[in-house]
Design a protein around this nucleic acid. Structure first.
Lengths: 352, 352
DNA sequence: TTTGTTTGTTAAAACGTTTTAATTACCTTT
DNA sequence: AAAGGTAATTAAAACGTTTTAACAAACAAA
């Protein structure tokens, strides 16, 4: 009572148990058991443990980090943590990290390479043991440098071409192909794609997928990809208007944001989807799902994104000394196909 | 080159600049200027600064924390970080914290008080300077204890009744009243509410709002609140069926999750919203917005939630010594009213 | 000259761990 | 009884800061 409620340290425990602080440390870290152990008397160990328990000892992280150089924290840097796709992944990473006694720091770049660099600096100062990063355009240099320093790093969602970096990505080519194929199978021919002008690996591959689906189905002449700058999404209205003037029948949207913007624009202009114009998109979405707005969408295996990325990172942290192996994990997309809006299930409630 | 790329410390700078480490510390912390300064020679200070710059000195956080006891990190614990409402708030907090040179740790409780307690322990061990918490049912004890220790704490979204804790919440009563009022004004009479059985302040107040709106409009006889357990949301189907059998015309959903589940269920049963049944809900939502599913919704001032909570917390951290003032910030909801679905703007694209 | 004041600088302690190397105590062997 | 081995324990250094108290030098006032 008199002492103010000062934090309990290893020293207090040592005093209370009548041993040295070294012994306490050994016991608390389980160094008293196992292969290359420190030989601590069974009873002493038990005594120490019980004192620690009784005083509710909580080791001081800062001291531990200072001494050992390990923080048991990792950083996760995405484009925008409030974007559902990334928020979901973040949640998975958080849960999984927690099980491994790791904590996670989150940051958003807004696709700005300068912000990315800042965040990396801040996180490294905080001493994170490793980073999971969604690279943005213009960040290649920064990331390569990081990897050269042998700093544990895993890329997520997108890759950096020409760099030997570990990554977890979707098979975007295949996803693009298959989702476009749904439209083709439904008989559409004039199918165009709405995409970003940013040079990101995932986007580019989605475009490739669409393109090869079209050519392989003899629709090469209709291939057309519209590139929007992400800070000028309002331009989408012009793109759509122009497309309609060319009797375009369906669109492939390269991301969920683009799809939502696109459909919103169409509604504003009075088009109904899919009545007037069909579409497919990447990522699922309550709105499109509920109202069968999309003919199909690419469902990404969120949990696996998180799990694989974290596992890869932890492995990479564990082997920091080794010359850094580079692993690529490519996940398989699932295509969710919706029945047309006209065939919405009309299951009227049975009884009453 | 020979030295391996060891991290630059304050010692290296001192050596390089030919001064003591104390002086370097003074300069790096700006203690050389201002009111109660440490009087460092202008030129010396400049020299130190330039050396630090040249060697790209990055202070070691762990050491700083160990010595000063301040981490410049705060924890944010919500129900589910992948929920759009919380993800948006998290993003605001993150941005704002960053400007104040703070980093943020996130955690999700899944409405489980045990998880909350664990997270609090973990975050405190990590040494966070303070916490922003969305309290869940059953966490009252834990939170009160925390506050008793004079630990900086701000509640978000919900309050803990009977405890003197700082908080940032919506005027949920008013929101409930006003959003229900929209339905009343549209001529509906049999209006029921779908809510959670959890005992949370925000939920209870929303119910109060609905209730008083109804009674004040002479509809007291129709008041009916359905309480669902959040792990048994599938029960919503029965609730809706039952309601339909009583000719209920419209629903007030207490949260976005409930609304989404509810509408999905209605669609499954073949009802169209709002053709067969009208509804209002809390929080905006792309789906309901796009298709005018909701007659109205409560729009919460996300950015203010984040900003007020963080500001309050930082203030509380700054004055840790004082006996802890308790501030309540009550934010005003905005009601967004949609025109009926039948009057969707049919502005066909002008030219072409 | 002495005394006091201001300015600039530094030595050293402290924060709470982890880990190495040394030490003690107690058995076995000879 | 001496030597060697093993089991258990500990003293002390190190990690990189911040901050206090002391010190030296220069100058001003007596």
């Amino acid at each position: 009572m008199g002492e103010r409620n000062r934090k309990i340290t290893i020293k207090d425990i040592a005093a209370e148990a009548g041993v040295s602080i070294a012994l306490v440390s050994f016991v608390m870290n389980g160094k008293s058991e196992g292969k290359n152990a420190y030989r601590v008397n069974k009873e002493t160990a038990e005594r120490i443990r019980s004192v620690a328990e009784r005083l509710n000892y909580q080791p001081n992280e800062a001291a531990r980090v200072l001494r050992s150089g390990k923080t048991n924290a990792v950083g996760v840097i995405v484009s925008d943590i409030s974007n559902k796709f990334f928020a979901d992944i973040a949640r998975c990473i958080e849960d999984r990290a927690y099980k491994h006694k790791y904590t996670v720091l989150f940051g958003s770049t807004d696709e700005n390479p300068q912000k990315l660099e800042n965040l990396i600096d801040v996180f490294r100062n905080k001493g994170v043991d490793g980073l999971i990063v969604v690279p943005c355009e213009g960040a290649e240099q920064t990331l390569r440098k990081l990897a050269n320093e042998n700093f544990p790093l895993v890329l997520l969602d997108r890759e950096v071409p020409g760099a030997e970096l570990s990554s977890v990505v979707l098979n975007n080519r295949r996803a693009g192909y298959q989702v476009a194929e749904v439209l083709v199978r439904q008989g559409f021919r004039r199918i165009e794609m709405v995409s970003y002008s940013m040079n990101l690996s995932n986007i580019r591959e989605r475009e490739e997928g669409y393109r090869s689906c079209m050519t392989e189905n003899g629709l090469g002449e209709y291939v057309r990809i519209h590139h929007l700058r992400h800070e000028r999404l309002d331009r989408i209205v012009e793109v759509l208007r122009d497309a309609r003037s060319r009797q375009v029948e369906a669109f492939v949207f390269a991301t969920n944001t683009l799809a939502m913007q696109g459909v919103t624009a169409m509604f504003r202009m009075g088009w109904q989807v899919p009545r007037d114009c069909s579409m497919v998109c990447f990522d699922t979405n309550e709105a499109f799902d509920l109202y069968h707005t999309a003919a199909a969408c690419v469902s990404q295996p969120i949990e696996r994104f998180g799990a694989e990325a974290l596992d890869l990172l932890l492995k990479s942290i564990e082997h920091r000394d080794q010359p850094m192996a580079c692993t690529r994990v490519v996940l398989t997309p699932e295509i969710v196909e919706y029945a047309g809006a006209e065939s919405l299930p009309e299951v009227v409630s049975a009884e009453v």
